Every structure is written in structure tokens, then in C-alpha cells.
Computed example of a mutant assay.
Amino acid sequence: MAIHPTAIVDPAAELDSSVEVGAYSLIGPHVKIGAGTKVGPHVVIEGHTTIGRDNTFFQFSSIGAANQDKKYAGEPTTLVIGDRNTIREFCTLNVGTVQDRGETTLGHDNWIMAYCHLAHDVVIGNECVLANGATLAGHVQVGDHVTIGGLTGILQRMRIGDHAMIGFQAHVAQDVPPFMTVDGNPLSARAVNVVGLKRRDFSAERIGVIRQMYKLIYRSGHTLDEAKAAIEALRGSEGGAADGDIDTMLTFLAASTRGIVR
């Protein structure tokens, strides 16, 4: 185990033998870190925190600290980080609360840039990018393949759908449906995230149906219930190529309790 002599690692912490820990880092007693993970200098990892394989933590991050909920009374809530994530400088990831699921979760293959904040009970999926200064309040849920622009603030309990793109310095106070590009303050839906979908090898047929869903929600003049019915009617179009994407959209809309960005 490559632990710098100035690092302080509690004897009760569970670190794989291949973990690297940089100078002046501090790792607490309830921390578990998987194989291949690199902890840079001046990083604090504390709380009931479990970290998977091949993650990289840059200097000055605070991982697993007590959350910033005034109701928190020191309960042994958790932070769980998956595999192959990159956490850049000055990021803060807090443990969950007993008022919710008791766990803050970061999935796999995420790129978390400098000064990002993941508050208590946040859930982030896989292959997401959070640009510098993105701030997620408590209980926010983010799907897979989501990009969040720099200096964006996301209000408590908001939901961000798969493949969504949130622009620079946005104020997110409503749910963001899958596949959409949104930005501004107040937030507005601009278009389908075509660039992101093409990068993920979505076919032209799938993108065409997703564009139809966008038009039904945002350009048709329909109520949301009317738009959902019209989206349901798209099933089987283009040989059913996008039926899974229709499921993704309808499932997201059905679960939204705080309204979607319009």
C-alpha cells in the first residue's frame, strides 16, 4: 500500500493493498476503499464512506463529511461511491440523512470537476459530467449520461433525466426530462441533446422519435397529459427503434411531482 508517511489512516479503515494515499491526507475509521483507487494530497475521507475501484481523488476534497441538514444528529448515514470516478479539487460529498434514504450515492465512471457539491441523499447515476462549481442540494436525483454546466444550482428534490444537458449557470427549480437541453434563469427547454445522443451512438431513427417527443411536450400546445398520450401513440414508429426511449420518458414524467421545466 503506497501511503505517504505524512498521511493519517485510521487503523480501522479498510483499504485494498493497491490503494495510494497522498501527503497529509486523512482517512477515518469507517472508510472502505477498493482496489486501484488513488487519494491525492490533502484529501479528507471520513464518515461511513464506501469507495469502489479505480477512483481518483484530487487534492483538497472533503469526502463523507457530516451533512449540512440542521436535523442531522450524527446518525451513521452513508456515502457510497462506485468505480472509476474522478473527483477534482475542492469537491464536497456529504453523507445522507435518516429523513430520506440515509445514503448519498455516486455511481460509476463520473467526472466531477472542481468545487462541485453533492449534498445529503443525492443520487447520481453513471457516466455523468458535473462542470466546475455545480451545486446539488439535498435529495436531488440525476440519471445516467447527464451533463451539468458550470456554476449551475439545482434545488432540493429535483430530478434530472437520462441524457439531459444543463447549460452554464442554470437555476434548476423543476424536473428536467430525459434527452433535453435546458439552460437559463428562469430555466427553459431549448432542444433535444442531439450532440450527446450521437456521441452515444443513438440511431437517426431513435433521435427522430425523441425529437417528436420534444415537440409534443414543448411545441404542440398540448397539456402535459395530452402530450403523454401522444407520446404513447408513438410506440412502434420507426420499427419500434425508440420504444425504450419512450418508456424512459413516460416513466420519468409519471414520477414527476414538482413539475417539469417548460
Rank of each mutant, 00 (worst) to 15 (best):
A189M: 05
Q99A: 15
R211I: 01
V182I: 14
P186V: 02
F90S: 14
R206C: 04
K38A: 11
W111P: 13
L151I: 06
V146G: 03
V209S: 00
T6D: 00
V9S: 12
E103S: 04
L253C: 01
G133N: 11
A65I: 11
E14P: 10
I112G: 08
G143N: 06
A119D: 02
V31T: 09
D175M: 07
V44W: 01
V142Y: 06
Q68K: 05
A229L: 13
R258T: 08
T50C: 03
L253G: 00
G161C: 02
E20C: 14
A73M: 10
I33D: 06
A7F: 05
V146P: 01
I112F: 05
A230F: 02
T78D: 10
A189L: 02
Q141H: 09
E232A: 12
D16W: 10
T50K: 11
P76D: 02
I160D: 11
G133L: 08
L118Y: 07
A2C: 03
I246V: 09
G149E: 04
D83A: 09
D247K: 00
A119G: 06
E46R: 11
M158R: 13
F90Y: 15
S25G: 07
V21E: 09
L106T: 04
H163K: 01
E89A: 09
R206A: 13
A7T: 05
V140H: 04
D100P: 12
G133V: 08
D69G: 09
Y24M: 12
L155R: 13
G40R: 04
P177A: 07
D69A: 07
V140I: 07
S256K: 03
H120G: 03
Q141I: 08
T78H: 12
P177F: 05
V80K: 15
